[in-house]
Design a binder for these strands. Structure first.
Lengths: 183, 183
DNA sequence: CACGTTAGTGGACACGTGTCCGCTTGTCCA
DNA sequence: TGGACAAGCGGACACGTGTCCACTAACGTG
């Protein structure tokens, strides 16, 4: 995955940054890049070189959750019809997002950078798989891709804490209906 | 609308700020609050007191466009069936948004602040009118409100310039389908 | 082992945002 | 008309983000 092997100290720093970031996320709801760098005992330059954007760092921090999310897709597809699987997967995303908003940023960053690179990547693939299954069953419209879905789901990031309960799930249904094939 | 009448100099400054902002928007694609304040010949404090957020300022700058948008709703409803009217209105929004991204921020800010206040306000009302008409005709699902629509349309703000053509309109259809009543 | 190459470092710096507060000035009343 | 007093002013300041580049030290080579 990483063609140019990392130098020993570099790998070390990287690990320490991620750990510090994890602590920061767990400790408070603030997440200041500066603070993470200091906590990790590295300069800001170092932090920014390893993770060019805040999202890149979050993506690493939440990699576990994201992988879980990715892994869930095939399982859901095995158990349910495509639309239900998609719905469940959305549910799961919302569950994560509710507690740790960071996952959202991670997912979004993930899919985005994957889009430009070749072959999307795990998250994009997961969504694509769900979409494809639905399409094959004639339940999902044929003119949407993973990026579209992420874009649409983006509303989650600008939901206020207080309106989360009333709107998050609800709008999920609306989006889902939009993705359905029109008969 | 503004109970405590503005002092003469205050009103003057406010006007000068808006004008400077308009210039700034027209002149370049950068929009720095600092610069606007300087250009208007006022301190930043003054700018921020008149317009607490960047969006508030944009809302004022684009008020004309926004009003036009609002005015279009009833006209569209008169000429077309509700769903078509809604679609056309969306189209119009996208047209504005393409050129002047600011309108989007203005719309979003507008609807949001209106939501908390009583009776939504012009933009919210316009969307609500479209929604209501659709609902009455049984063409629009009954469980969505103006805020929902704005939230969903929010994807427009994070669209990259280059993907605008391929995705903006296209996703509009998806959203529209999501808003339709399921028969 | 020593030495050159170059990946990697880290912190100073530039920038934009937003806040705060001591000073100024319009406004209104006596 | 003049004086008090609050509305309004404006810029200094604190903060977070992200960039840049002179230095440092890990790694491979002879």
């Amino acid at each position: 995955m990483n063609a140019p092997r990392l130098r020993a100290d570099a790998a070390d720093n990287r690990a320490r940054i991620v750990e510090a970031a994890r602590d920061a996320v767990a400790g408070s709801d603030e997440f200041k890049l500066n603070a993470v760098a200091k906590r990790a005992g590295v300069g800001q330059g170092t932090l920014y070189r390893h993770f060019p954007t805040r999202e890149a760092l979050l993506a690493e921090v939440y990699r576990f959750d994201v992988e879980e999310l990715v892994a869930a897709a095939p399982a859901l597809l095995a158990e349910h019809d495509p639309i239900t699987a998609l719905a469940r997967w959305f549910d799961r995303l919302v569950d994560y997002a509710r507690v740790k908003r960071g996952v959202l940023a991670a997912v979004e960053a993930g899919v985005w950078q994957e889009l430009s690179a070749h072959g999307l990547g795990p998250i994009g693939d997961a969504i694509t798989a769900l979409l494809d299954a639905g399409r094959a069953a004639g339940a999902v419209r044929s003119d949407v891709d993973a990026r579209d879905v992420v874009l649409l789901l983006g509303y989650l990031t600008r939901l206020d804490e207080q309106e989360w309960d009333t709107r998050a799930r609800h709008l999920l249904h609306v989006v889902l209906d939009g993705l359905r094939a029109r008969e």
